[in-house]
């Protein structure tokens, strides 16, 4: 009987359906439009005369002979050497996630198991650090980095991103380790393990779900960062997002906007698959901190 009520078409349900459908169009349409348009020429994607041109590729067919063109992708990846930025991004993201998780796991575990008052204060400091706009820190980095001659290289950026990422990672893993019963590692310590052995043989084998969820958010932070990477990397070490930003300056003037469009689509595509594969973990990570309070 319950199911019958649930499947009835009530006015409320129709309004809900329309509202959600409207949101879905608003959320998805820009992505679909840009993906489709990235395979067209500029006269079509930015068609003042008729937006149908962007769909049917009127000028694309005239200029290149085909319905689709890879010109934008060729121009950005090969001519403007976007592939370098892609490699740099991979390096930065990989090491940032790896180091963040290593530091965060150790620290989060210690904070979850410590009963002293300073653990609370460290978490509070973490909350304040989490709120700092990243740009405020940047102005403090530049002078020392120039003086020590470490500005512009990837390792500097990686360690800065790790540091900026730490407050969030610590909080997340701390609440995850709180959920693992204390008795587990304490019984191991009764059996003669010391704290490190208990961590190694009892905690590490069961911590992966929490670590993976935290890792996904570290990945996003490193991948999406513009503030740190645009200020701390030299031109040849640029990652994808600052590279796109510098495309806007140089490429736009030469009428090669499609290069930037192609680069934007290239930078979004990995995120699309990221959501596709990790949707469940992302949702659980977003709600983990919240639902518990």
């Amino acid at each position: 009987m319950n199911t019958k009520i649930e499947n009835k078409l009530t006015p409320v349900r129709i309004i809900a359906f329309i509202f959600v459908a409207l949101w879905l169009v608003i959320a998805m349409f820009p992505f679909i439009w840009t993906l489709w348009g990235s395979f067209k020429v500029q006269a079509d994607f930015f068609s003042k005369a008729d937006w149908l041109n962007a769909i049917f590729g009127f000028h694309t067919e005239k200029q290149t002979g085909g319905f689709f063109t890879m010109d934008g992708y060729y121009g950005s990846w090969i001519e403007e050497e976007f592939w370098r930025a892609v490699i740099n991004t991979s390096i930065v993201v990989f090491f940032t996630v790896l180091i963040s998780l290593t530091f965060g796991t150790l620290g989060g575990y210690a904070l979850a198991r410590s009963t002293y008052r300073y653990a609370f204060w460290i978490l509070m400091a973490g909350l304040i650090f989490r709120a700092m706009p990243h740009m405020t820190l940047i102005s403090g980095y530049l002078q020392p980095f120039f003086a020590w001659n470490v500005w512009g290289i990837l390792p500097t950026t990686i360690i800065v991103l790790v540091a900026i990422n730490q407050p969030f990672t610590l909080w997340m893993l701390h609440s995850f380790f709180l959920n693992i019963p204390k008795d587990l590692d304490e019984s191991a310590m009764c059996d003669g393990c010391n704290r490190f052995q208990a961590f190694r043989y009892v905690i590490i084998p069961i911590m992966w779900p929490g670590v993976i969820t935290t890792g996904l958010f570290s990945f996003l932070l490193a991948y999406n960062d513009f503030t740190v990477t645009s200020m701390l990397l030299s031109d040849e070490n640029e990652t994808m997002i600052p590279a796109i930003a510098s495309f806007l300056g140089t490429v736009q003037e030469e009428g090669k906007v499609m290069y930037a469009v192609a680069a934007v689509v290239s930078a979004t595509a990995p995120l699309f698959f990221f959501v596709l594969f990790f949707q469940r973990q992302i949702v659980s990570g977003l709600t983990a901190g919240a639902v518990k309070g």
Partner: peptide, 13 residues
């Protein structure tokens, strides 16, 4: 346990 994490936060934040 917390030294690496605390030191990066101290040094870079």
């Amino acid at each position: 346990f917390s030294l690496p994490s605390l030191s990066v936060m101290f040094l870079f934040i």
